[in-house]
């Protein structure tokens, strides 16, 4: 960058939304289509299918409900991260972000327990269409949870560095939006795959 531009910021046309937020929303828009396409396929095949109540019975509603509560709670804690950021409360920011990460990991652990229970019963993705969708959808979702945990953890690391809070803490809003989206996906997956 040359001297002329570095000293004076370039004048730009006013924009309704900050760039990062606009970017994350565009990203979420395409994510809506990913999960939308998958869920539409599932719902349609389910409507014509023979009915999968037998397969459904293998899923533990209790574990699924616990996971639902975990994700809802983590959505709440990450909103608290954002309000701590707005207040400039560095300590709260870090502790709530820590809780969010732990809750995300807990979600994955419970998911793993469920998976191993299925595997020990001999239920693999090739045991019929329901299990194909079950593992496909929850697997895809779990990958998103994992990505969210990585994003949250790396934000926590950079914010904890000296001077990091001032520079990076505004990113909490983007992490939050993504995390809430993952939560919303689960809100629909849970009734479809456990209760339906």
């Amino acid at each position: 960058m040359n001297a002329g531009s570095a000293s004076t910021p370039d004048a730009v046309e006013p924009s309704p939304v900050p760039a990062a937020k606009l970017g994350i929303w565009w990203f979420l828009a395409s994510e809506v289509m990913v999960f939308g396409g998958a869920l539409v396929s599932f719902i349609l095949l389910r409507l014509v299918g023979p009915g999968w109540s037998e397969d459904l019975a293998h899923n533990s509603v209790a574990l699924g409900s616990i996971n639902t509560l975990i994700l809802i709670t983590s959505s709440f804690t990450i909103v608290e991260v954002l309000s701590a950021q707005k207040r400039g409360d560095e300590k709260k920011f870090r502790s709530f972000m820590g809780i969010t990460i732990v809750l995300g990991l807990l979600f994955l652990v419970i998911k793993g327990v469920e998976y191993s229970a299925h595997f020990s019963e001999g239920l693999f993705p090739d045991k019929g269409l329901f299990w194909a969708f079950y593992f496909g959808l929850t697997g895809l979702h779990a990958l998103h949870v994992l990505a969210g945990i990585v994003a949250n953890a790396s934000l926590l690391v950079v914010v904890s560095r000296p001077g990091g809070f001032a520079r990076y803490s505004h990113r909490a809003e983007m992490n939050g939006l993504y995390w809430h989206f993952v939560d919303v996906v689960w809100i629909f997956l849970f009734p479809l795959l456990y209760l339906g």
Binding site: P16, W25, W26, A29, V32, M33, G36, G37, V40, I43
Partner: peptide, 18 residues
């Protein structure tokens, strides 16, 4: 409204796909 449309247009397309 801009952000709203970013969320609801894809949702509409999902319905179209359905």
């Amino acid at each position: 409204i801009f952000i709203h449309s970013l969320f609801f247009i894809p949702l509409l397309l999902v319905v179209v796909l359905y």
